[in-house]
């Protein structure tokens, strides 16, 4: 029988358990909710057949990722600490560098808050309501992910530029400078990270269905109560996941910010712009140290997301 070929591996059960969590059919929540009991025999078992070919594939995959990602990134870490902690402490004592990092964090936090509110609202609208042009809107919401950052910057300059933008001169008369100032950086960051929360929420909202929400409404709960007590608890991990992804994306935006910021030292220079500038000014140590901080943020984002994922599916 097929079972004879199963090569039991210590990881097998863990993996199978994880699969079960992901293994949701159209009525998936019901399935995982009722059938999954820890310790119960997993219904589907991974068959690991090891042939010379699978070892070859494994070797190719590891080698490819080692040369493309692991080794280059480890070199950045090595270069940062080649003089011990001097590069990092130089960065800490440089007021311009600290201003750049503070600006980056400020912009990212504003962008994440804005995009989270927009993302939750937009996802609810796209999943829970029917309106003309819905399919077009749901396709357009993803557009920011595939637009070149330089085009994003250009687009914002054309509309919000102070000299001859569409809205820019009017805004400047009101005393609001957007381009070459921090609001422009916020706009660019909001633009590039906009779809991330929506995309995390749409599949989750589709899966949880509306039965519980309808029940709550029929028992007299208003829309806000239904959202806070019924909908939000089941999407909170997906929201958090989207927030972490948006935060990583917002802290790291470079091209779009470069076009709209004007790179004014101490005022509109962000951390990523600082990496470029330091490198081109032969301050490689400073560039590596800043990059190291950004790598650290990226890695922690991925690890956090990895820890959230199972929780989200194990509702």
């Amino acid at each position: 029988m097929a079972e004879d070929r199963v090569d039991r591996d210590p990881f097998d059960d863990v993996e199978a358990e994880r699969d079960l969590d992901r293994d949701h059919g159209p009525e998936g929540v019901v399935l995982t909710g009722t059938l999954f009991q820890p310790g119960a025999p997993p219904p589907r078992r991974r068959r690991v057949r090891r042939t010379p070919l699978s070892y070859l594939f494994r070797f190719i995959a590891i080698a490819y990722l080692f040369f493309l990602v692991a080794w280059p990134i480890s070199l950045v870490v090595k270069n940062t600490f080649s003089d011990g902690f001097t590069e990092l402490s130089d960065l800490w004592n440089d007021p311009d560098a600290m201003a750049a990092i503070r600006l980056t964090v400020f912009v990212a936090v504003v962008a994440v808050v804005v995009n989270t509110v927009f993302g939750v609202g937009m996802a609810l609208l796209l999943v829970r309501y029917d309106f003309p042009g819905k399919r077009l809107l749901s396709a357009l919401v993803d557009l920011p992910l595939s637009v070149s950052p330089i085009v994003v910057g250009l687009a914002l300059v054309l509309v919000y530029g102070g000299r001859d933008g569409w809205f820019g001169p009017w805004l400047e008369d009101q005393g609001v400078q957007v381009i070459f100032a921090w609001p422009g950086i916020v706009l660019a960051t909001v633009f590039v990270a906009m779809p991330l929360v929506v995309r995390e929420l749409v599949p989750v909202l589709e899966e949880i269905g509306i039965e519980q929400e309808t029940a709550a409404r029929s028992l007299g709960a208003n829309a806000w109560q239904t959202f806070r007590r019924i909908t939000f608890p089941s999407i909170k991990w997906a929201v958090l996941y989207g927030v972490v992804l948006s935060l990583a994306r917002s802290l790291g935006e470079f091209g779009a910010v470069k076009v709209v910021s004007g790179n004014v030292l101490g005022k509109t220079r962000t951390a990523t712009l600082m990496v470029e500038e330091k490198y081109l000014n032969f301050d490689k140590g400073g560039a590596y140290a800043t990059s190291f901080l950004l790598v650290l943020v990226a890695v922690s984002a991925i690890v956090i997301v990895g820890l959230i994922r199972p929780k989200e599916t194990r509702r």
Binding site: D9, F11, D12, E15, R46, V48, R50, S54, F57, R58, A61, I62, L65, V69, A70, P72, I73, L75, V76, N79, P149, L245, A248, R249, L251, G252, E253, F254, G255, T272, V275, E276, Y279, A287, Y288, S291, L294, V295, V297, A298, V299, A301, I302, V303, V305, G306
Partner: peptide, 30 residues
């Protein structure tokens, strides 16, 4: 496939998505 360190490969695959592009350039440069 199942092998020791597979989780690490998963992290490596997501890294280019989370890493700022300018840092990606610097990383490859090194």
């Amino acid at each position: 496939d199942q092998f020791f360190g597979k989780r690490l490969l998963e992290v490596l695959i997501d890294l280019p998505f989370a890493l700022p592009t300018i840092v990606a350039g610097l990383v490859l440069l090194s």
